[in-house]
Simulated assay, not measured.
Amino acid sequence: MTVKIIADSGCDLPKEIIKELDIEILPLSVIIDDKEYGDGVDMNPKGLYKLMKDGKAPKTAQVSPGTFKNTFIKYAKQNREIIYIGFSSQLSGTFNTGYLMKEEVLEEYPESKIEVYDTLAASLGCGLIVHRAASLAKEGKTINEILEQIDFYSNHMEHVFTVDNLEYLYRGGRVSKTQAFVGGLLSIKPILNVEEGKLIPIEKVRGSSKVMKRMIEIMDKRGVDLKDQTVAISHGDDLEKANELKNMMKEKFGIKEFVINMIGCSIGAHSGPGTLAIFFLNKTK
């Protein structure tokens, strides 16, 4: 029996990949006007971004302890080995809840094998790790072989992204009100990455056309063997620009394999419409 791969909705994988690789996705929640919606269940990203453009300020909530516990128990009863691959613990409390529920379930089912892994990654950075793990599970690899690859991918995953409107990062406490105001006036686009699971601004560029070019330059500097990788692009309801980035990558690096998807509700609630992000490895061996 294959290892069961579980992830949360912060991985932003397309539904067709989730179905093909039999990944169990646990939804985070989005709260709008005191009403709670399951990420990708009761609320889809396109609907969320429309509400945000209309002035709504959503909040988010982690996966509930009960959801974790019931999911772990379901597969423990089937004698399945389990790996939960979590969205960065520095951006959400979800991983820590998963760890606590794992300990509870192991008290009831001490013979079970349950591993939880904090990727310190977000969106399709986490998604590429989940994709790799689920592909190996489908091939029948052992739990230790899969964990080794999860560890490698997590340690070498690059995130490079920009947001269309600094106001959303201001609401989430990522930039000051002055930075958001001045950035909006001057069309300044921040470029950020993820270091040790946290969002870190690395530079600012004026204008959206220049920011995409700069993202590609950073990718060129940090990436290795890019044409042989599966590269991911996530976007805040701007498929046109995501495809523009894809074409730039194909032309410059010869990349053939892409995963492209809209940023889900749990991350999009903080990054906002128009966000663009690219994910790739800085080491492949």
Results as ranks from 00 to 15, higher is better:
242 A>Y: 04
35 K>W: 11
233 I>C: 02
142 T>V: 09
74 K>L: 01
282 N>W: 04
87 F>S: 09
187 S>K: 15
65 P>W: 06
41 V>G: 11
145 E>Q: 15
153 Y>Q: 09
98 G>Q: 06
209 S>A: 12
195 E>R: 14
69 K>I: 08
151 D>W: 04
105 V>G: 01
115 E>A: 14
239 L>Q: 06
202 I>E: 07
233 I>T: 01
200 I>Q: 11
96 N>K: 14
242 A>W: 00
18 I>Q: 12
10 G>S: 15
66 G>V: 12
54 D>W: 05
9 S>T: 14
103 E>I: 10
118 D>E: 09
231 V>C: 05
221 K>P: 00
271 S>F: 02
221 K>H: 06
13 L>M: 13
56 K>H: 12
139 E>M: 11
151 D>H: 14
281 L>N: 03
243 N>H: 09
138 K>E: 02
268 G>L: 01
85 I>W: 12
277 A>I: 05
28 L>V: 14
257 E>M: 06
253 F>I: 04
154 S>F: 06
246 K>V: 02
153 Y>R: 12
217 E>M: 12
216 I>L: 10
154 S>Y: 06
190 P>H: 07
142 T>Y: 08
108 E>Q: 14
116 V>W: 02
138 K>W: 00
165 N>R: 10
59 K>L: 14
97 T>C: 12
96 N>V: 03
72 F>K: 05
28 L>N: 15
226 L>A: 06
88 S>H: 08
133 A>E: 08
11 C>T: 15
205 V>N: 07
5 I>W: 12
136 L>Q: 07
238 D>G: 05
14 P>S: 12
6 I>E: 09
177 K>T: 00
21 L>I: 12
283 K>H: 05
27 P>G: 13
10 G>V: 13
136 L>I: 03
218 I>F: 03
76 A>D: 03
181 F>A: 11
284 T>K: 10
82 I>D: 01
36 E>V: 15
284 T>N: 10
203 E>P: 11
177 K>E: 03
165 N>W: 00
32 I>E: 07
278 I>C: 05
186 L>A: 04
191 I>N: 07
2 T>P: 15
180 A>D: 03
201 P>D: 08
73 I>G: 02
